[in-house]
Design a protein around this nucleic acid. Structure first.
Lengths: 136, 136
DNA sequence: CGGAATCCGATGCGATACTG
DNA sequence: CAGTATCGCATCGGATTCCG
């Protein structure tokens, strides 16, 4: 691996060294490192609806900066969740769509989203209780 | 909410302001902010096996620092996923166990872990391919 | 239009030292 | 034993500017 490539990939993920993992950890960290960041899930959700262009995504996801949309889509492409198609027109036109694996991930993630919706209130209650008990 | 409490809670999570969320986002960010960090899942997995004491957890989770174990368990307690029981003995003895909600979360997370195991290799392949194509 | 490059503040996390 | 307090580095992500 060249120094150039190291520089390229290090922008995308620090997971080159997964480090020692117990037994249950292996693999899930890579996925959680993606899903855990601020925008990946939202991009996944939007692309689940269909093919989208760059600015379409940005308009559909309020608050995401140009930079983070670039970074997020690029990471998703790298890991094989999203496919990028660039048409060499002027002005340029780029389409993003989920791969089968990306769709599979989105399905699984939506199970987590369902769980979140179910327990959202319970978490809030627990949190308020804790906060109330731990303020002097 | 007092300034004191704000200080306390701000150590645990920056999610006081979830910010504007589209429609699909609501709730899941709170959960992913937990699951996404380096140690939460590992602690969850270990506690899934049964009641554990502080040092038991630390020995069972290689690489976790005392500080991160404290922070992680405290966050899990705050959100109602883990219950903490302290016995005022000398030396002190503290037990951690999953709540029903915590067990439910661990179950859901393990679905994601299963997914990860299934696609782990495919991700690695996609990543290598991408890296190979994007190095000069 | 769809980025890339740079700067910078906020947060995450490890290491270390101290405590009831 | 089970923490707390402080430091310092690394990464994340927002804002801005430049480019083909």
């Amino acid at each position: 691996m060249s120094a150039t490539n190291t520089a390229v990939t290090s922008q995308l993920s620090g997971s080159a060294s997964t480090g020692p993992c117990g037994d249950d950890d292996c693999g899930i960290r890579d996925v959680l490192d993606r899903l855990g960041d601020r925008w990946t899930v939202l991009v996944l959700v939007e692309l689940y609806k269909g093919v989208r262009r760059f600015n379409q995504l940005q308009r559909a996801i309020p608050g995401i900066s140009q930079r983070m949309l670039t970074v997020t889509t690029k990471r998703l492409c790298r890991d094989g969740f999203v496919e990028r198609t660039a048409y060499p027109t002027i002005p340029p036109q780029v389409e993003y769509r989920l791969t089968d694996m990306g769709r599979s991930l989105a399905d699984t993630a939506s199970a987590l989203a369902d769980w979140s919706r179910t327990y959202k209130d319970a978490i809030a209650v627990a949190r308020d209780r804790w906060d109330a008990e731990h303020m002097q």
